[in-house]
C-alpha cells in the first residue's frame, strides 16, 4: 500500500497514526507540509529513521523545494521523488491511503 501524509508532524500526528497502522514494507510518501517530517536533527528524526527500516520513505521533491529544504538536510534513507514518481508509486501499489 502507498500511504501519503500531508501534515507537518508538529501540527498533527497523521504520520504517527500512519506508522502505527501501516503494514511493514509499505511505501510512505510525504507531501505538502508532510515534508517537514524528514529534516535531519529535528525532533522527528529518530521516528523517521526507525520508519525507514520497516518501510520505504519518500518525500515529494517539488514540496521540499517550495519550502526551502535542501536535499542535504534530509534524514538518510529518505528518497526524493517528483510528481511522476508519485504517479508511479500510486500505480505500483495495489491501493493508496491518504492520511489527511
Amino acid at each position: 500500500m502507498l500511504h501519503t501524509i500531508n501534515k507537518s508532524p508538529f501540527e498533527k500526528n497523521s504520520l504517527g497514526t500512519c506508522l502505527r497502522l501501516a503494514k511493514p514494507g509499505s511505501d510512505i510518501l510525504l507531501i505538502e507540509d508532510g515534508v517537514y517530517s524528514v529534516i535531519k536533527g529535528s525532533a522527528m528524526e529518530s521516528k523517521v529513521r526507525e520508519a525507514t527500516k520497516e518501510h520505504t520513505v519518500y518525500a515529494l521533491g517539488p514540496d521540499l523545494k517550495a519550502r526551502g529544504i535542501e536535499e542535504n538536510r534530509l534524514i538518510e534513507g529518505v528518497k526524493v521523488v517528483g510528481y511522476d514518481g508519485f504517479v508511479e508509486l500510486a500505480a505500483d501499489n495495489d491501493r493508496v491511503q491518504s492520511w489527511l
Binding site: L21, K23, R95, Q97, S98, W99, L100
Partner: peptide, 14 residues
C-alpha cells in the same frame, strides 16, 4: 485494523 486496511480496494479518508 492494519489487516483490514490491506484487504480494501478503495479507501476514502475524511
Amino acid at each position: 485494523l492494519m489487516k483490514l486496511m490491506e484487504e480494501q480496494d478503495v479507501i476514502l479518508n475524511f
